[in-house]
Structures are given as C-alpha cells and as structure tokens.
Write a protein that binds this DNA or RNA. Structure first.
Lengths: 203, 203
DNA sequence: CCAATATTGGGCTGTCAAGCCCATTACTGG
DNA sequence: CCAGTAATGGGCTTGACAGCCCAATATTGG
C-alpha cells in the first residue's frame, strides 16, 4: 500500500478507473485472460498509464484484491451493509446473493480471484489473508453480538461458526457456478445458518 | 472421451504418465504456470508426444479434470474408499483431509482446478459438471442409505445435505489454503456433519 | 508566472509458450 | 516376415503479451 508517487485527485481517479476495470474483467474472465490491452480499453487509458500506476501485473492484482476485499465488506455500498448480528440478518445477507445471476457468472468476487492466484508464485498472500481476515471479523462481530445479547448460548464457538458460514458461502458459490444454479449456494448457506441457529439457548 | 487414435498399452501408459504429471503440476502451480515444457520434463516425454495424445492444451486439461474426478471418487485408491453412509464414516472422511498438508498447498484437487478454468473460455464445463455430479452422487447415496436405515428422519432432504457437505469441503479447503491452517476446513466439515446429524430421528 | 512534478500517448521489443512439421523408430496383426 | 500403424524425437514458426522507452502535455505549489 506504500505509494511511490504522490497522486493528485485526477491521478487517483485514473488509478481507480484502472482497478475497477481490471477487477471486472478478472472477475468475468480470470487473471490469465485479462491482458493489458483489455484493461486499457475498458479503463480508457493508455499503455504508459498502466506502467505508471502499476509497474507490473502483480501490483495491479494486489490492488484488485484490496478493492474486492472492500467490496466484500460492503464498504463500497451506499448505505453500508448492516451488521450480521441476528439470524434474520444472516438470512437477508444470504438471500441477497441468491437472486442475482452475477454469482453464477464468476462466483465470489474475492474468493474466486484468491483461489486463482493463491497457487501461483505471485506475492499476493498478504492481501488474501487480510481480505479473508477482515471478512471473518465481520462474522465474528455479528456472532459475538448475538451471543452477548443472548441469542446464542454462552459456550457457542464464534470462530467455529464464522468458519462454517464463510466456507458455506465460498463452496456454495463455486458449486452454484459449476451447476449454473443457485440451489447449492442456497442449501449451503441455509444449512450453515441453521447450524448457527442450533446454538440458540433453550427457551 | 472419443479417441481418434488406437492406443496400445504402451501408448496408454505414456498418456497416463502425461496426465498424471500435468495434474500434479497444475495442482501445485495452476494451469497458467504449467507449460508444455514442464509437463514434458515431468512426464519424460518429447514435444510431439503431447501433440500426439493431446492436440491442444484444452484437451489435456479436460483429461486432467476427468482424472481428478476419478481420484476424488476414490476410484484410484486401493482399496477403494468406502461408502459415506454413516456419521462415523463422514467423520473418517473429513479427518482424512485434516492431517495432510496437501490441502494447504493446493486446496481441493478437483475444485481448485474447476474454479480456475470455469471462467475462461475453455470448453470444460461438461467435465466439471460431470465431476461434481458424480461426487454429489456419492454423498446422496450415503445419505440415502442412512435415511433408509433409519439414521436420518424420513423427511431429511438428501440433496440439501449433500450440497451442504460439498460446499463445506470446497469452501473449507479454500479458507484453509488461504490461512495455511486446517482449522477453517475442520470447522466447516464438522459443522456440516453436525447439521446432518441434527436430522437424526428422536430416540 | 514558472519550475517541478504528475499525467498522458503510443510505439517497440524481448520473452515465452503453444502447436506444427518431418523424420525415425517400435510395434502389431496377419 | 512384412506392410501398416502407432510411438517417439526435437526443431521451428507464429503469435501474444508484459514491460519499457521517449516524448509531450497538464497540473501543482510557491
């Protein structure tokens, strides 16, 4: 995240345009099929601008990962996504993915990219760990709030449940993408949420 | 799967050697980083042999997908993996992944490859759908056996539970790979299995 | 206003990988 | 034994893409 150039607002806008265009292209067609030229045309910039803001492809991918991590947190939405601190909120969160065909096209905007670049020799591990870590934190915060409020038993393992929810989403989107059908994602998410619910205190 | 050449046993062995070497390289470094030369050296074949058995890279990837699908089913193991028709069997299946560092290196041998090639323009969708379909069938068969035996309630939704198990594994391996820690995979699998168990009839 | 610095343009080149070619050797079936 | 076919060897061409270069223009800060 250390910038070697001072960026004016105009430069920032150009940089943002590049990242957004690259993120969209990579999401739809993967890193490998997204070449310099496609990014240039989509972002309406010239060759040297890519070199200027991103000396190599790896730095661009890192920027896209960071950008996608923010999207996943809802930081880019207006208004910002609310907390996931109730079963109803989790269901709302889940359902928000089931009625958009975007998931079928490219899976999870962060996870599918992470999966693709993780096993290459690109130095992107930090960005991936940070992205998943911040995402997990959102679930942990919501689950902890539920536990503190009494919606979950005191001995409910927050991290365990957060892992289950995250994995259900990541795996569900992959299966949905493969089957071109949201049913696997729906089933996985509902199962994970039901499992969270099973830790509700007896009434 | 239609062969345009008649293959002698020797040819079949060479072909198998190529597929296995390519599968290993792709698993570790991804499709993009696995070039012709690396496959040639690993399989100890010459350039024309690749062209002979696999006219282009896409056909090789298709073969690797089919090969990985067989591995996932345990068809390549001796003895073949048993049925997943009890909670104990599911736990044994889950634990078999948690003590091997292979998962941390490359995720699911089939799913990570599927995720990588799915959004490219390669014509591999059939192989992916077939691979996941056969895998799902194994879970469905095991769950149906449990239901028929009375280990699960009669109204337990077999497909729903199969989706939950598969997604937990796929998502769990991805998170484990990212974190370089099997904990997310363990949590996801245990949660999914516990959810299956919650459909046991009251006793 | 003016220097320093940021931003932009577009061409160019080295690298690398996929797939092709022609020839040679091994094997099979009758 | 001997055609016909399969298997092998290695070089080569073509194309694509990442990164680089030399400029020119715009903007900022003092």
């Amino acid at each position: 995240m250390t910038e070697e150039h001072k960026l004016t607002p105009k430069g920032l806008a150009t940089r943002e345009r590049i990242v957004e265009a690259a993120a969209e292209l990579i999401y739809l067609h993967g890193v490998h099929a997204t070449n310099n030229d496609l990014v240039r045309k989509a972002a309406r910039v010239s060759g040297s601008q890519l070199s200027h803001y991103f000396p190599d492809k790896e730095s661009l991918i890192r920027a896209v990962l960071a950008w996608r991590a923010d999207s996943m947190m809802g930081l880019r939405e207006t208004p910002p996504r609310g907390d996931l601190d109730s079963i109803a909120a989790l269901h709302t969160w889940a359902d928000s993915f089931l009625n958009q065909e975007t998931v079928l096209a490219g899976g999870c905007s962060f996870g599918s990219l992470a999966s693709e670049v993780m096993k290459t020799d690109l130095d992107v591990h930090d960005e991936i760990a940070i992205g998943f870590g911040r995402w997990q934190q959102q679930f942990r915060a919501g689950l902890a709030a539920m536990r503190d409020r009494g919606d979950l038993r005191r001995d409910a393992d927050i991290e365990y449940l957060a892992h289950a929810l995250m994995a259900a989403f990541q795996g569900g989107t992959l299966l949905a993408q493969a089957a071109q059908d949201t049913a696997p994602l729906r089933d996985a998410l509902y199962a994970a949420i039901a499992h969270v619910e099973s830790f509700a205190p007896p009434r």
